[in-house]
Write a protein that binds this DNA or RNA. Structure first.
Lengths: 354, 354
DNA sequence: GCACTATGGCAACAGCGTTGCTTAAGTGGG
DNA sequence: CCCACTTAAGCAACGCTGTTGCCATAGTGC
């Protein structure tokens, strides 16, 4: 790491604390305490951030017997990002400001049966409508969330469930050309987990799993405050975890996959049973990764939130939270794919220079 | 991060590359390429390391039309560490040099039934015998590996399997006082995984799982090149992953735990079946964490290595390696608990300053 | 023997966080 | 109301980081 990387690192550290502080803001001295830097260093860093328009002064704290601390706040309008969720039959697009607040939403039906170029042209049109035809000032890029599996690093779809014929299609580069801005592609569960990590739904714990039970069952893992994607960006394949060695055959070819068992119970109208199966899978996760929390989301969980929350908490032995579907956690998380690197929240486990 | 932390970071980066290069050594320019630093910066860093006696020049590479590159090597004798494995009935102690090479081994029977202070006094005696009564120059500390569960951060044992009455005993601080050097405590599987990560057994992949099948079944996870310990240092509890929802009750109170099923198959003399069960668990790990390799070890694996390797590779779909039991992977890994931080290989997922 | 190539050190430099000091802006006792 | 005291934040000088430009060294190959 060289000096310019050091500067970026510390600026990101400060920005992340400013982001987490939200409307309350944070003082220079608090930043110094939390980063371990000296107050003077923080003054210089925040001066640069203020000069760049990313941070502004916003009032003062009450005095504690001396000069009151000046409150600093992230300037939400200094940047924004688009987030797009592509689902089997619908598209959700959101515009988020730098603070992660939703500025606009747009939902539309989608037919993924078409050829990828046509579908993506459609996506670009919808994003244009979301932006009302003009490029908002400070647009940093667009994040796209799809069901997966796909390759985050290259932005190429693989055998994305519900999107036939997409295997190997360069979604990221195609859409980047259409939109004229940087595009990042990731799995829907990863996007949601990242968004939840940044929104504070995960509470104090900096490691949690987001479990999404909708058309399928998937997971996004946040370990040590950052999204864990694994060696080939395929981590979080939770639906095909074997939890019943001699169970019924799954469409993936293996037996006793948790997704098959869970969805089967749901289909039979036994949410209690589905919740207990999901709880067993969650308990496996908690034991294996020693994570501090589980967050549940998806259509099927939303249909019986109390049952799922109670059974999973019982089995896993950690706090369980619900992702509010109305807040569009996946589309919002997709936009956070663009914003997160500014705050040093890119994935910390990616292969490093050694 | 401040400048002194930056210097430490870059020094660790260089040392880790030197360590990985082993006897072959590495030139300044290669270090520059791999770290992303300029050649001149590397010259300064290696000059400091040479002045500290950690690195020495060792010959030259063949010329490629100009001045031949000078080879740098880690000076193995610049430091050493003790590693101790405490098992149910035996103690293994090793002395490793800075390069991770084994200098000495000592094995002795152990009765963990006694009170912790008496057992640890015994351990300290054995370490004294390993060191032949004198403190070797450059001794950095002692790492201790036990079956777990235990708390790495505080160095306190919890309900360590095979060690009754140890719950809550401050193993690290007690032993540090007896030995007069820093002590680090961790689970046996974590120690082994760390040792394997540093020894190159994991090959190119910087994420893998070490699965140990002996008296029990446990795992150590290396993600992104560093040991993953989780929020409360309890990660890697693999033995009680549920793989058979309605399976037989386990002593942990849950049903269908992989350890119970696996060991039951072994007890019945069906290693093929045990290997297939272990394979299913390994496949779960690979899917969930997208790791690039599985490493197997432990007494039961050693009794039928081909069967376990073949079945696990088949199920998990990634390369499977064997940890050589004769190389004392757990005791050696325990010593690496002390050495690894020098090379920036402390756990990268520990809670960060934000 | 000489031109060429590649490595690595020396010296000057820009930029990072740190230190010592000063100024600003409050509180609270007399 | 004044003034001592406390706390926050900026200015200037500094030490140390990696970087840049230049040069000495040590090989190859015509």
């Amino acid at each position: 790491m060289n000096l310019s990387a050091l500067r970026g690192h510390n600026a990101a550290l400060a920005l992340d604390l400013l982001r987490a502080a939200g409307r309350d803001g944070i003082s220079r001295l608090e930043l110094a305490e939390r980063t371990g830097l000296t107050p003077q260093a923080v003054s210089k860093i925040t001066a640069r951030l203020r000069a760049a328009g990313l941070v502004s002064e916003a009032g003062h704290r009450a005095s504690t017997g001396g000069k009151p601390r000046t409150v600093l706040r992230l300037a939400p309008s200094a940047g924004c990002a688009v987030g797009v969720r592509l689902d089997r039959d619908a598209l959700t697009a959101v515009l988020l400001d730098l603070a992660g607040e939703r500025v606009r939403v747009r939902e539309a039906p989608l037919d993924p049966g078409g050829e990828p170029p046509a579908v993506l042209a459609r996506v670009a049109d919808e994003v244009g409508l979301l932006l009302r035809g003009e490029r908002p000032p400070g647009l940093l890029g667009a994040g796209v969330a799809m069901p997966g599996p796909l390759d985050h690093a290259s932005g190429v779809a693989r055998r994305v469930t519900g999107f036939p014929h997409w295997d190997g299609f360069p979604v990221r580069d195609t859409l980047a050309a259409l939109l004229g801005c940087p595009v990042v592609l990731d799995k829907d569960t990863n996007a949601a987990a990242l968004g939840l990590a940044l929104s504070g739904v995960a509470g104090e714990s900096d490691s949690f799993a987001y479990l999404h039970l909708g058309t399928g069952l998937g997971a996004g893992l946040v370990l040590g405050g950052g999204l864990y994607r694994g060696a080939r960006t395929g981590a979080g394949e939770f639906g095909h975890q074997t939890v019943q060695l001699d169970g019924p055959e799954c469409r993936c070819g293996r037996r006793g996959c948790i997704e098959a068992l869970c969805l089967d119970a749901v289909r039979r109208g036994e949410p209690e049973r589905a919740a207990r199966i999901l709880g067993a899978g969650a308990a496996n996760l908690v034991a294996l990764l020693d994570i501090g929390r589980i967050v549940l989301g998806g259509r099927i969980v939303a249909a019986a939130p109390d049952v799922f929350t109670a059974r999973v908490a019982e089995a896993a032995g950690v706090p369980v939270a619900l992702a509010d579907g109305g807040a569009h956690p996946i589309a919002g998380g997709a936009a956070q794919l663009i914003l997160a690197p500014l705050f040093g929240r890119g994935d910390p486990y990616s292969p490093k220079i050694r």
